[in-house]
Amino acid sequence: MPSDLPTYTNQVENGTEYRIMFCLDFTNKRLRVDDYSGKIDVIYTRVVEIAKTHALTKVFIKSREVDWQSFLSKGCMLEGIYKGYFNGNDAYCMAMYDDLARRTSDYWLEEDQILQQVLTLPVKFDRPLIPSSMTMRLARLEDAEQLSLLYSHIFQTYPTPMNDSMYVEKTMREGTIYYLIELQDQLISAASAEINSVYANAEMTDCATLPAYRNQGLMRLLIHALEDELIARQVTCAYSLSRALSFSMNAVFYQLGYRYYGRLTKNCDIYDKFEDMNLWTKSLK
């Protein structure tokens, strides 16, 4: 792949019988269809063509409830349900693959065991206190550099270029909100909410804590704060994609009242390989 390719590009394509809003995600070698209208047969055919043109090995379509069985009948598989994604209506993640290695999960049974362990945990609706030595606040544009350093320290690879301060700043300008926790002016933990104001949903993502400060409930504090901010902005659906191999991140969302709605096979390149991601959603109504 040429090195001058962007990491991803969002596009809208209008045909005589369809409209498709999609993301060409070169970093993760996937085509993500975020919305569409028109004839399903034509949309499906065109989506496959686009993926093949760009040598993308995974396609997933956020299908409307009325259409998911039509996509299923064409060979797509249902991998998860984004509950309440479209202004309260569900989105169905319909996936297809063009590569056997991409389709095949290497850790599925281990991930099932982790999920079962998580589902036995008690739900914790109480909000822990912020340690007196730490401060928590909404991030500002000038925090982009420190945020990028935190993400580059934690993740060997990541689905988006969070190690680039210019990219972090760009996401802020486009409406993503970040909460962070500091200890004596050192950034030790952060998380973000990527808001879709058209459909009143938000992805809880970019969760990172320095190893020395884990298991102190910091991520729960950050997610609580982000949810408060989202509710104030009339966002009604929060969701997250958590590494299926991570007990701690899945536990955080389960204990905060998120429900498990599926697993997306080798969905993104994170840490050092394509990983399966568990889908968690929560109604903020």
Rank of each mutant, 00 (worst) to 15 (best):
L226V: 06
L226F: 02
L221T: 13
M277F: 01
N201G: 04
E229T: 14
T265E: 04
Q216S: 06
E227W: 02
C207M: 12
D269T: 07
M277D: 10
A232D: 08
Q234P: 01
A232K: 15
R220D: 05
A251K: 10
A202K: 07
N215R: 15
G257P: 02
E174F: 07
A225T: 05
Q234R: 14
E275M: 02
E174S: 15
Y213C: 01
F274A: 00
A200I: 02
L218Y: 05
A251E: 01
A212F: 09
L210R: 12
Q234S: 13
A202W: 10
I270H: 00
L264D: 04
V252Y: 09
T265P: 03
E182A: 13
R214G: 10
R233M: 14
R214T: 15
M204Y: 08
G262Q: 03
I223F: 06
A238G: 12
T265N: 13
R220H: 12
G175V: 07
I195T: 07
D228W: 01
A208N: 04
P211E: 07
G262C: 04
L241M: 15
M249L: 12
A232T: 04
V235T: 15
D276V: 05
K266V: 00
Y239P: 07
D206Q: 12
I231Y: 01
T209E: 12
M219W: 11
L218T: 07
L221W: 10
E275L: 02
A190I: 05
K266D: 01
L222C: 11
N201H: 13
E275N: 07
F247G: 12
E227K: 04
I177P: 03
C207G: 15
E182T: 14
M219H: 06
A251N: 04
L241E: 09
L222R: 04
V252C: 11
D269Y: 09
P211W: 00
T265H: 03
V198K: 15
A200H: 15
H224L: 07
L245K: 11
E203K: 11
T176Q: 15
Y178A: 01
H224K: 10
R214I: 08
Y260H: 15
D185H: 15
N250Q: 15
R243H: 10
I195F: 05
Y213G: 07
N201C: 09
R259F: 10
T265F: 03
F247K: 03
R263L: 13
V198D: 14
A208C: 02
E203I: 06
N267G: 01
Y178E: 04
G262D: 03
F247E: 10
K273T: 00
E203Y: 14
A212G: 05
A244V: 05
H224Y: 11
A200L: 13
Y199H: 14
Y258F: 15
A232V: 07
